[in-house]
């Protein structure tokens, strides 16, 4: 009887998990190992013949100055974006758990940028930065709008940061709101009776209790920032003069524009290792700070 039950369980599991596992294997696992294989070849993405070249691609990658420039850009970008997104999202969440009349409307409005795809967003914002900002600058004379947006290294960098934060903050806000709503009122009331001020309540009660949300938000914003591609492609395409080329865009260019598929996959492999490492470190680190109420 017990044996039969185990069999049924196994069967149930394969029925429910089987399809998704199958797709996961087909679209993630197999391409991943194929990519590993290609990273040791000189395949150009088209040719029928594929030659094994050993670790040559990895050597070329470490010698590629542009790759490391992109790497450095991606790190700077990730740091800026993770801090800004989470600070803004948390502030918005704090604001929107207050009993405001327009609360639901505002939550929806802040969330909307998230449902627009990155490519489209990139093209819309390119127009806003280049044409919109210029027009506003002309009309108001404000220095901020009169900058040559996306035409210099600094405005290119901050341009992408602004759009990314604008898009991601609404999503993170929803997660923070969910976290804030789950904070036990009685703990806050107890703190109030003990005479805690707003700042103290926030720091010693609310923040520790929403740490699970912080873990999730940090993880999401960090890995998304690291993997940013479509926004980069549409908004600046790595320009001006290659100063805003993210790692993902560099890999794409290497594989598809330069027709070095092997080198591209080698870069992608290193990229994967870095993203996995950084994300797990971050999750491990923030997990330790989570508390139970």
């Amino acid at each position: 009887m017990a044996g039969r039950k185990r069999w049924v369980n196994l069967f149930m599991q394969s029925v429910f998990l089987g399809p998704s596992l199958l797709f996961f294997v087909i679209v993630v696992i197999i391409p991943f190992f194929l990519g590993m294989y290609y990273s040791f070849t000189d395949w150009n993405g088209v040719a029928i013949t594929v030659n094994w070249v050993g670790a040559r691609n990895f050597a070329a990658m470490f010698a590629d100055a542009k790759f490391w420039t992109s790497f450095w850009f991606t790190i700077r970008f990730t740091v800026a974006v993770v801090i800004l997104t989470n600070v803004i999202a948390f502030a918005l969440a704090l604001l929107l758990v207050q009993p405001l009349k327009s609360r639901n409307l505002l939550r929806t409005l802040f969330f909307i940028p998230n449902v627009i795809g990155g490519l489209l967003l990139g093209f819309i914002w390119q127009f806003i930065f280049i044409r919109g900002f210029a027009a506003v600058g002309k009309a108001t004379g404000l220095g901020f709008f009169k900058l040559e947006w996306l035409g210099t290294e600094a405005t290119g960098f901050w341009g992408i940061v602004i759009v990314f934060v604008w898009q991601a903050a609404g999503y993170m806000m929803i997660i923070y709101i969910a976290g804030l709503m789950n904070v036990d009122r009685s703990l806050i009331e107890a703190a109030e009776i003990d005479g805690a001020g707003y700042g103290q309540k926030l720091r010693f009660i609310t923040l520790p209790l929403v740490m699970p949300a912080v873990t999730v938000c940090l993880f999401l914003s960090m890995s998304n920032a690291f993997k940013m591609f479509d926004l980069n492609l549409a908004l600046t395409r790595g320009g001006p003069f290659g100063s805003t080329e993210s790692l993902a865009l560099n890999i794409y260019t290497e594989a598809f524009t330069n027709s070095n598929y092997g080198l591209g996959t080698a870069k992608a492999l290193l990229f994967f290792v870095i993203v996995a490492l950084v994300s797990s470190l971050q999750v491990w680190f923030t997990k330790r700070r989570e508390v139970q109420s």
Partner: peptide, 17 residues
Amino acid sequence: PDGTNQEFGALMQAYVA
């Protein structure tokens, strides 16, 4: 070679800037 023209685009932009 493939990719040269795109790279030159970036280089030329850096030069004119």
